[in-house]
Amino acid sequence: MSIDSAALSLSSRGAAGRPAPWHDWMRKAVRLLLGLVIAAVVWEGAVVLFGIKPHYLPRLSAILAAIAATPQAYVDGFLRTLAETLIGFVAGGAFGVLIGIAFFRLRALREMAFPIFVVSQTIPVIAFGALVVLWFGNTLLAKAVIAFYLTFFPVTVNTLLGLETVDPRQVAMMRSFGASRRQLLLRLQLPTALPQIFVALRLASSLSLVGAIVGEWFGDTTGLGVLLLQAMYTENVVAIWGALLASALLGTGFYACVAAAERRLVFWSAEQ
């Protein structure tokens, strides 16, 4: 038997073991939908069956009806909060990766600045938020800055961690090919760190939403956080649940997007 045929038989066995990806995807989607429907039925049924007062838990159908009655407020709020979240997330992610690289390259900088970074993260976000509002006013930017503040730190830490896991033998090999520091970074170190960076980005996707919503509490007219606050002041329980559902949709959707990007870009780490 030649080398080729041995390898071929090996790879075809591997391919047969895996089901078709499309089929797999469909089955997952159907199950997810089924789970959501069951949860909705349980919610609705429990409220009716046990006579739970709407003050504690309104019926799901009542919440959906309330959203349908004034859809524009929810759509506007959703888009506004999404914009704040996205700007904060992208800026925080980019800044985190850059600072992570800088800390990796320059040990002195890391020893000087890293403790300050840690201290910055111990300040409660509410206290920091007050300052940001003083600086930027009640603008979209102010919310994005708070989202950024919650986002950059985990990304910095994980970028640094990821860069430090690079196999020194691989670095030696690249150097023996005559690789420059830039080539080392782009062709070896950053790709190696990518799985770690994505762990932080998934976390950051939820944190940036928290930052945006908390930012809106300092004062604004549109946004999911604003809807939440207004509903709370008027003790409109149905509206609180409406804003909650919209936030959940935004948070889940955003997380799913980041996770999907991860699966596409870091395809190798799941399969090794």
Partner: peptide, 15 residues
């Protein structure tokens, strides 16, 4: 950059 070096492990880049 003058010698082509092959280390013990294959050290292939998984991506």
């Amino acid at each position: 950059g003058q010698v082509s070096f092959m280390p013990q492990r294959d050290l292939l880049l998984p991506w």
